[in-house]
Write a protein that binds this DNA or RNA. Structure first.
Lengths: 247, 247
DNA sequence: ACGCTCATTATTGTCCTACAATCTCGTCTA
DNA sequence: TAGACGAGATTGTAGGACAATAATGAGCGT
């Protein structure tokens, strides 16, 4: 249902087409927060495809704000890794090269393992066990998984459940930022039902270890989970990635 | 007028890799780069102590530039973790709480282990072995270590040598950013000669594993190395850290 | 004296305009 | 055809202005 009806404006910025699922940011945020949220949303839901240029002048017009906040929003998204800033050339929605994608997995692997370890250690602090159980209920469902973004969402929420109880806010933030980048979206496009099944089984194993207090088991399960995902990415068509690596 | 852009994601820029070997921004960098470099320098050498306020108006005056670049420099340093941005209050040189410090170690641990693994795997690519050997020669010296910043520098360069050959630029950048934060500086103030000896011995063990191709051994050695450093930090006086945790 | 409200001040957030610096691209020339 | 060149597009920076917000301190009543 999301069309490519972006042929009217120069840079096709999603003015208001998206249904702003996270309306909270718009409420008390500053102008910059609002713009960052909207641009992020646009990138995540595909309205702003990788490689799309983000011209300051267009953004000031589309959002009705001045260049100051626009520039700051772009820097912030750049720090998040969602857009790329080229000196004197402006910002474009980031497009990962094959190598960068693998590099991100090499970072996520040990990091999410650590998050799983810490989550296991903290599972009985406060109401962590209850919150964790509540957050991961979907993974126990035997209903067949829906394709694409639907499962992508279940996956994201499962990992988020781990970050949420790991007790290390900086680690959690870092993991979230590394998960954002759009590989996941592209990933959901090439997954087969069998792959979904594998993924769900791995989620269950991870959850089992965490709930049982087996930190190293959880870490190993996360490692295996991400390695398999990395394997899928490695077999994606070259056209998925940005070409022309330096080096 | 010309309407041939934005047809797809091939808006031309995507293939433009960053050609900037950003060795040192001071040379041909933009205004912002210059300010960032100077402020970073000030934070690292103690001219700007933790907690020091960085008021935009003062900086515009001191550096003779307008507010735009000043603001951008502060955001960039904030992304680096060197300054803290408080809404409507401005920027202050970051001061880590005890908990934040521990959290950073929990991130560095698995990350630097991974860097050591990757470095071991890449030790025989290109001239990595030669470069690595050249960079770590100081650790083999039997001369007694000098206190304080002198050893701090040797330590930093040793870890840098690992990052440099690990083959994962994003991981290396991340590790560097996590090392920056000023714990290390404060750390060098409380170390005894025995601690220096331990640290050097651990460096040698790490180097031995990497050169011998023992990835897991190197990872384990890095783990132990950082755990010991973390142990030292845990026993530092409370006054070292920022008080008053949010939460 | 004490605590509270309220004006004052300091500082950031945003807008505006303008110009310099740099990049892109089409055209013209040799 | 290759290369120089110039026009247009876009970012980088300057400078001034005002609004929004948080810290400060004075005055007030009890």
């Amino acid at each position: 249902m999301d069309e490519h009806e972006r042929t009217e404006q120069d840079s096709g910025i999603a003015t208001r087409a998206n249904g702003s699922r996270d309306g909270n940011a718009a409420s008390h945020g500053t102008t910059v927060d609002r713009v960052v949220a909207q641009l992020r949303e646009g990138v995540m839901n595909g309205t702003l495809p990788p490689g799309q240029r983000l011209v300051e002048a267009d953004l000031t017009r589309d959002y009705g704000i001045s260049r100051g906040p626009v520039r700051e929003a772009l820097r912030r998204l750049s720090a998040e890794g969602l857009v790329e800033l080229v000196p004197n050339r402006g910002a474009v929605v980031r497009r990962l090269s094959y190598r960068e994608t693998i590099e991100l997995f090499e970072i996520r692997l040990p990091l999410e393992c650590q998050a799983a370890r810490l989550a296991t250690a903290a599972i009985d602090h406060g109401d962590n066990r209850d919150r964790f159980n509540a957050a991961i209920t979907p993974i126990w469902s035997d209903a067949p998984r829906r394709y694409g973004t639907a499962y992508h969402e279940e996956n994201r929420e499962f990992h988020e459940a781990i970050f949420a109880i790991c007790g290390n806010r900086q680690l959690a933030d870092l993991c979230r930022r590394l998960q954002l980048p759009l590989i996941m979206l592209q990933l959901s496009g090439v997954m087969t039902p069998a792959m979904y099944a594998d993924s769900v089984a791995e989620h269950r194993e991870i959850a089992r270890c965490i709930l049982a207090g087996d930190a190293e088991g959880a870490a190993a399960a996360v490692w295996q989970h991400l390695r398999r995902a990395q394997g899928i990415v490695e077999h994606m068509p070259a056209s998925t990635f940005r070409q022309g690596e330096p080096d």
